[in-house]
Design a protein around this nucleic acid. Sequence first.
RNA 1: CGGGGUAUAGCGUAGUCCGGUCAGCGCGCCUGCUUUGGGAGCAGGAGGUCGCAGGUUCAAAUCCUGCUACCCCGACCA
Length: 490
Amino acid sequence: MAKNFTSRKENYSQWYNELVIRADMAENSAVRGCMVIKPYGYAIWERMQANLDKMFKDTGHQNAYFPLFIPKSFFNREAAHVEGFAKECAVVTHYRLKNSKDGKDIIVDDDAKLEEELIVRPTSETIIWNTYKDWIQSYRDLPLLINQWANVVRWEMRTRLFLRTAEFLWQEGHTAHATKEEAIEETEKILHVYEEFAEKWMALPVLKGLKSPNERFAGAVETYCIEALMQDGKALQAGTSHFLGQNFARAFDVKFLSKENKLEYVWATSWGVSTRLMGALIMAHSDDKGLVLPPKLAPIQVAIVPIYKKNEQLEEITKKILPIKEALEKRGITVKYDDRDTQKPGWKFAEYEFKGIPVRLAIGPRDLENGTIEVARRDTLEKEILNITDIDIKVANLLDAIQSNLYEKALAFREENTFKVDTWSDFKKQIEKGGFILAHWDGTEETEQKIKEETKATIRTIPLNNTKEKGQCVFSGKDSNQRVVFARAY
RNA sequence: CGGGGUAUAGCGUAGUCCGGUCAGCGCGCCUGCUUUGGGAGCAGGAGGUCGCAGGUUCAAAUCCUGCUACCCCGACCA
């Protein structure tokens, strides 16, 4: 058992906070609400980035980079959009510092006031659409499929490492299309990319669906999302894809000449996932012994620990291990051979366990004699002694097995914690216990708002391809033709 | 941003009510020897302007004021 580590049952949010720090993923910085992502945490993020980036490129997108700063005037072009972000924007007002009169301090130089304030981007729609205006003239310029990897700032009052920080890293895709249908198709295509990434790489099952008007992105016509269930029964929005209609095209006057020689506004989408995925990854699989990582995203997939008394023994073990390490690496597996003499084997075991390394191999004098090796898997904590022959194949298979086991486990958890509820009293009871609640909703914002006020639960998503069934709204009793997904959320 | 709590060595903490050998303990760190199949043992050692800034007092970790950060609850938010 990990020493002095809060269990999930004791205090879930403390468990999460301690885990992030102790697994060496991130820490709070000197700047309020902003985190330092440490090398181990960043390595996981880099793996996410690399895979997502490939998926974006495979679907025809290109990367570009737009400025961190956005002129204030851009913001009030799209009314809903301003309203959505105005309250959490950092604003740059000056461009120079100077020494104070007594020379003891550095102060803002009042003479260096910006004519127009700059907003640190909370998202980039405005600067990007202002730019697209010049890039798009003809239907031949469409579709325009751009993604950028960037940091954004949203001045949050209450922050938590990875889940909600004032500055975070993300990717934001911004595309322009000639037709509404094509833009919607793009929005859904990206949603599918997100779903595939979550399920295949993060081993995280997600619900795909639409947001209710209350939860929709400011400026979007329709917001699609993938929604995951965490181990404490709370929902977490893992990614969003927005159909923006012609809202930004109108606001920034982005028109193109169609084949029919008609001047038309373009149709837009935007979509993003952020370092919040790190929080989802952590909370989906980890346990009371620390982090559990799916092999496909683990920076180190296999750790090898030698057990020895004398230096000659270590040399012997190393001779045995290096070919194994090479064979594993040939299969694309990342391996760390930990031959440090400064830590003892038991210490290393505990360390790799806490950091969620999927597979640990240990080899000592007994194994040398018997031609065996100890194989331990992080997800189930099982250990077995295997014959060393073809160990690379066995480990590769084990990594695959761990990857799918984590997914299956998370899926089973979600299924066990998804409930159909038909009465208001059952709804209130169930929401206290957590999980996804499938209930009828009359489709009005008022009802959603009231449910939120009384239970803190929101509509997480209206699933795509939802089963249609007649019923009565769980709150108002009015007619409804489908169930939607309610939960308390991060 | 409102309410509550916390801040003492790298980490975790005792001491704060009742000012005066109170700056102590555990882990970690350094040196040496013995150890090494689940967080090693012994011996020696280094490390702290008690969050920051003021104030009260002969004397402040301890009392007062302000500030900052973190945690919990709420509001806001994706």
